[in-house]
């Protein structure tokens, strides 16, 4: 199973990278509101059971992929093509 983990700065946490991106986009003439910069982690998970895979990826997020003090995460799961 393929997992995509989206890690974002938590709501209310100052995101200087997002602010820099936002002001650069404005300089290019784009009318943008607040920009926030996070990170994407793509993973292959062995498990083919949806609930089991989700629970496993959640543990990965809690232990390593995100720092719960400052980051929130979202998990998307999909069948690996060809399986």
């Amino acid at each position: 199973m393929r997992a995509t983990v989206l890690v974002r700065p938590k709501h209310g946490i100052l995101d200087p990278q997002g602010q820099a991106v936002e002001s650069s986009l404005r300089q290019l003439g784009f009318a943008v509101g607040e920009a926030r910069v996070g990170r994407v982690v793509d993973l292959e998970v062995e498990s083919n059971d949806l609930a089991g895979a989700r629970a496993e990826v959640e543990r990965m997020c809690e232990q390593l992929l995100a720092n719960p003090l400052i980051e929130s995460y979202e998990i998307e799961l999909a069948e690996t093509p060809g399986e």
Binding site: L14, P16, Q17, A20, N67, L69, I70
Partner: peptide
Amino acid sequence: EAGLLPGVLRRNDSL
């Protein structure tokens, strides 16, 4: 990060 001290260090606000 190891949880031996409280808080976390982030990118400087000035970048």
